[in-house]
Design a protein around this nucleic acid. Sequence first.
DNA 1: ATTGACTTTGAACGTTTGTTCTGTTATTAT
DNA 2: ATAATAACAGAACAAACGTTCAAAGTCAAT
Lengths: 238, 238
Amino acid sequence: MARKSAGISDRHRKIMEFLMKFQDENGYSPSIREIGEHIGVASTSLVDYYLRQLEEREYIERDQHISRSIRVLRPINASIGETVKRTFNRMTEAVNELLDIPVLGRVVAGEPIPVPGSDVRYFDPESSVAVARSLLNPRENVSELFALEVQGESMIDAMINDGDLVIMKPAKEASNGEMVAVWMDDKDETTLKYFYKENNRIRLQPANPTMKPIFVDDPRHLRIMGKVVLVIRQVKGR
Amino acid sequence: MARKSAGISDRHRKIMEFLMKFQDENGYSPSIREIGEHIGVASTSLVDYYLRQLEEREYIERDQHISRSIRVLRPINASIGETVKRTFNRMTEAVNELLDIPVLGRVVAGEPIPVPGSDVRYFDPESSVAVARSLLNPRENVSELFALEVQGESMIDAMINDGDLVIMKPAKEASNGEMVAVWMDDKDETTLKYFYKENNRIRLQPANPTMKPIFVDDPRHLRIMGKVVLVIRQVKGR
DNA sequence: ATTGACTTTGAACGTTTGTTCTGTTATTAT
DNA sequence: ATAATAACAGAACAAACGTTCAAAGTCAAT
């Protein structure tokens, strides 16, 4: 006589709950001994005994002679909503944390840097860098950020090396103490310097404290292209 | 140059697909031998070899000495391409793209750097940095990475400034061309230098090309603490 | 031609694990 | 009370399984 969903004891319920919890936490089923330990049963045979009952009543399924092969057929006492909700939150958080910043080109000392003009829609970005938002100023307008790869060793006095990745935002002016990318007409050169406006001249201070500043008297010989926001150096593992 | 899932051979892909398919059909993971049988590999060690690689690249996860404990961390190449499945993949990818690296402390020239000892479980990390995985070597074992904040200007000859964030992995030895953090007994100092082993001495080359190298004749006066993997400079918006 | 990094094999070892068996203790019906 | 049935223990076993190691093969760079 096939007994239907008859007598589910307290033990059965405990086992089912443990199965689901263990599955959720580990991604696979517990062994018989692990089940026994958890429900306070010393002998493996007794656990097997209960499992067989659960199997007969079609609460679970398992494959003979295969470790950890228990499948839960129908969840008992569902409290799954919590888990789903939590993982969903973590996912949306992570997705928002990740910025995709286009790499517009290279910074070469002797050439003006490529800057996204307001009219010129987009340079086709060669590629993009993924950057965590938390590395940036929280109130940064991330949509206008762009990245440049430094080519050559012309920026060493800005403590920036060949291959470094500079992330910046477009700007035509700067405040004191900000690091800017400037094009100097008289020198035909692009550099990265800290910007300071003094009485009647502009001081461009290298990041390397051992280097001396450059002074510019006529601001018209100087074009600010953008402000540096972040520098990333990927050390070549060789 | 942010590229995604690099360094995955055909075998790896085949294994991942089998893992997902098997999981889907049986509700639990295949054993090592079952995997080997399916991809046409006779020895269990070779399967283990591949699994370890997949583990390092964080495609899967498994628990030691536990049968069928493989967890698929990120699905690969879903052959059943539905819109839902694809967006789901993109989300999990994004989640996996984001690494949380603990900041263990500061690098000060006159002090040894804090390194996660194998026995000393964890310094309580002061905080953590979020870093996109694509910024790192794809086969880097990201779980052992840690970050240090540079304090003072003692590292300027390594092109690293006060406030910079150095991400490194523990190491006691290094290969030529790698940037390492070393403690020099005779100078009582921690520095970051490029490591080169020459005939009968060690050359420590500053990253700044204008600086001269340091030569160490006796390797015992030199302790390698770790290899530098990434340097991040958050330019103070002031 | 040699090195070195990566791939592959085969076998062996020690656990983990499911299964089975014998036997004991409770519970219940008669 | 007694017999029958259900609940439990403990041990023992063989298969399944993860791990490790020594050794050999492959392939590209030097």
